[in-house]
Design a protein around this nucleic acid. Structure first.
Lengths: 166, 166
DNA sequence: GAATACCGGACTAAAATGGTCCTATTTGAT
DNA sequence: ATCAAATAGGACCATTTTAGTCCGGTATTC
């Protein structure tokens, strides 16, 4: 459980690398594949998906490539991952159009809804700036101000909270 | 992502039903399959797994069957689910014996470790009593005392917190 | 000793996953 | 104009994972 698909991992890696490039520049798939060690065909597909999701912008033709559509702090973790996941539900009875044939005898649905909403809410507060720089949250003393929808998880990430690692 | 395997869902359902039975009684796979609408062969496998995990106890022979090994409040969500999941990591670079070939250029590992630990910790605080009775946490006024390792998620579940559902 | 039930391996069908290949189409440079 | 660089995206395949079935074995009760 929990584990994201490999495409999602590639997407996270791609966004991370694009975030390091100058904001107005654009990087070709070939270059990015070289940097990231991700098979370029697969990476191409992933970037297309990210483009459709509006996370990344593309410039076609010679000299073209991909760049972030906006600042990492405006890109949520789920924005990057969702295009490559079929569902974000913990159990299937929480999936969009599933009417449970066991509803008579099973009472998992409601507690599961709470659980599911909690998890989603936590992840919703995560933005990609928490992942980009190499350990920027560990070495940098200066910490950014907490955004409005800050969650416990986001807070911990920003602080590199050691407690969470135990 | 997040989604548990179907066996895990069956395991949750099974534990829920066993929790409703009298603590000293034991229910056969056939009976349980009838109650839960789960294919009995599959359910048998699931219960064997739960037994190996120490979640349920088995009584062999005529009149035998399965019962919970301890009170629902002493059974954690992860106890029930883990036997049927290959991994609890969000990304593969957090899995037990994975040495990352991208460690030079990828800085996802450390923030991901925080993320991973956070998720696990939240789920670790979940016990099965939060799932058993039909809406007991919604209709019952009396609420149990918070255990030592209470987490935000467990708290919300205990309260059936509407905020989490938005 | 026969019926009841757990135990658990072997096997199969179906689906998801990860990856490759091939062919447009757009664009910049010569 | 033409060519090369690059994205766009469909079709396809191999592998793995998943879900489920089947079957013989063992323990226990009546």
């Amino acid at each position: 459980m929990f584990k994201v698909s490999r495409k999602s991992e590639y997407a996270l890696i791609a966004v991370q690398h694009l975030a390091r490039a100058q904001p107005d520049r654009v990087v070709s798939v070939a270059d990015l594949a070289g940097q990231t060690q991700v098979p370029s065909d697969v990476l191409a597909k992933v970037l297309q998906g990210l483009k459709r999701a509006g996370v990344v912008r593309a410039v076609k033709g010679a000299g073209g490539g991909y760049g972030l559509a906006r600042a990492p702090s405006d890109i949520r973790f789920l924005d990057v991952v969702q295009p490559f996941e079929d569902t974000l539900a913990v159990v299937s009875c929480q999936m969009p159009s599933h009417d449970c044939e066991r509803s008579e005898t099973c009472s998992l649905r409601d507690p599961m809804a709470v659980l599911n909403a909690f998890v989603l809410r936590q992840f919703d507060g995560l933005t990609m700036d928490l992942f980009v720089a190499p350990h920027h949250w560990l070495i940098s003393g200066g910490r950014s101000a907490a955004p409005a929808n800050d969650t416990s998880l986001a807070r911990r990430l920003r602080q590199g909270e050691a407690a969470a690692l135990r």
